[in-house]
Amino acid sequence: MDSSGRRFKVVVCRNLGPDVMSILEARPELDLVVWPQDSACERSWLMENISGATGVIVMLTDKVNAELLDKAGPSLKVVSTMSVGYEHIDLKEAAQRGLKVGYTPDVLTDAVADLSVMLALMAGRNGGTGVDLVQRGQWGTFSWAPFGLCGPQLSTTAASPTRKIGFLGFGRIAQATLARLVPFGITHCLYSSNPSSLPNHARDAALAKQHKLQAVSKVDIDELSRESDVLFVLAPGGGETYHIVNETLLRKMKRTSILVNASRGTLVDSDALAKALREGWIWGAGLDVVEGEPNVTIDHPLVKEPRCVIVPHIASATLETRLEMATRAAQNLIGAILGWEMPSQVNLSHVS
């Protein structure tokens, strides 16, 4: 409540579960308006209820644009999203209106790293094809062959003692993924990041020593594509990285290489990747995200490729991670409204 005893209207676009809703409900200053269904919030409901709100908690599916902000009016102080990405929020509009924007970085690092390794293994070892074979009841009719359902091994062997793992983007999630891959015996880590950022030789040398690798090296994207046995796409979305994985890059990769994307679907040209798989430029792909999702039907070119393993954007889908994300979203909102520090606030100072 403010000095006059007025409560602050807060719109919540999805029930965050008893553990987190109780945090919001415990604040007498807040007057909660919660989307009542166990489904994505309908735009019409949000537009109807946002007027006069001081804060709103949104999901990735809720578009925060000028239309919504105009409807909210000058009372709106904070937009808090239960996500690490904020492409669904018009940051320019938020900055111009003096809004605070909260998000949930870092808390999903381990979950995304876990899934990235899972996708690499599934794609390399024909996991999608194998699961489909069993689920369609065709295991018994499958004709075993000495090299049937074989794929490139992630771990090193006596015959193949070198494994080079590549990262497009080398932030927290990439480095957590690297740590998980060390027991497989990888020997080299290559990465390509923002061209404007200088190589961090001291950090790279420390990582190589920590993980007992022959080298951790920043390289250009051409070398990254040529040398990586597995290439993990873990870079931010946006115009600068749109379709950065395209036909040119894919043609440079090894025929036994694996592509994994657990960041944003827009980084990978789906048609080019489907062509690469169909024509055997690379071995396989593991995707948590696809451009245009969730409109990915059985007719999608990547769904038709047997060596492409696709899961429906579940990288953060562990009970522990989602609880922490929801808690952070609630804490961000409360902090902004009550004048406390927000645990995770998007820096809008550079947005114009």
Rank of each mutant, 00 (worst) to 15 (best):
S316L: 02
N15L: 02
L323S: 13
G55M: 00
F170A: 07
E279K: 11
V58F: 04
Y242L: 15
E29A: 15
K218C: 12
T157Y: 10
A276V: 05
G5H: 10
S344A: 15
E247C: 09
L302F: 03
T177N: 00
F167T: 01
K209E: 14
T54Q: 14
A215S: 15
R251V: 01
K254C: 11
L231W: 10
S192K: 05
G286Y: 05
T157A: 06
F167Q: 03
G284L: 03
V12A: 07
V346C: 04
N126I: 04
S196F: 10
R136K: 15
V309T: 15
H201P: 03
P312Y: 02
E93M: 11
G292D: 03
A53G: 03
L213M: 08
V20L: 01
M59F: 07
R180F: 04
D106I: 13
G128Q: 08
L267A: 02
P343N: 10
D204C: 01
T81A: 10
V64E: 07
F232R: 05
Q153Y: 13
L338N: 13
W340K: 15
A202D: 14
K100P: 04
P74I: 10
D31W: 05
I314D: 01
V64W: 01
A40Y: 10
R264I: 09
L273S: 01
Q96D: 14
T177P: 01
T129D: 12
R97F: 10
A113I: 03
L60H: 02
V20E: 00
P199W: 03
P28T: 09
P161T: 01
H201N: 13
D2E: 05
T156F: 06
P146A: 13
G151E: 00
P74W: 08
N347A: 13
C150R: 11
D204I: 00
L149R: 09
P18Y: 00
T241D: 08
T141N: 12
V216S: 08
R125H: 08
R163S: 08
L231M: 08
K252F: 08
W139G: 10
L181Q: 04
R172P: 01
P343H: 04
G169C: 00
W144M: 11
G127Q: 08
L69K: 00
A66M: 12
G265P: 03
K212L: 12
S344W: 02
A329N: 09
S155D: 12
R6W: 08
M325L: 04
G127D: 10
I282E: 07
D31Q: 11
D132V: 06
P105L: 10
I314H: 10
I244D: 06
G292R: 13
L99P: 01
T104Y: 01
E42K: 12
I337M: 06
C308H: 01
E48P: 06
W35N: 05
T297E: 06
P312V: 09
S22T: 08
L181M: 14
I282P: 07
A179F: 03
D229N: 14
L149K: 07
N15C: 10
E227Y: 09
V303P: 00
N126M: 09
P343Y: 04
T241E: 01
L190M: 05
D229V: 02
E247R: 13
C189N: 09
C13Q: 05
K212H: 14
G339N: 05
P312K: 03
R255E: 14
A40V: 12
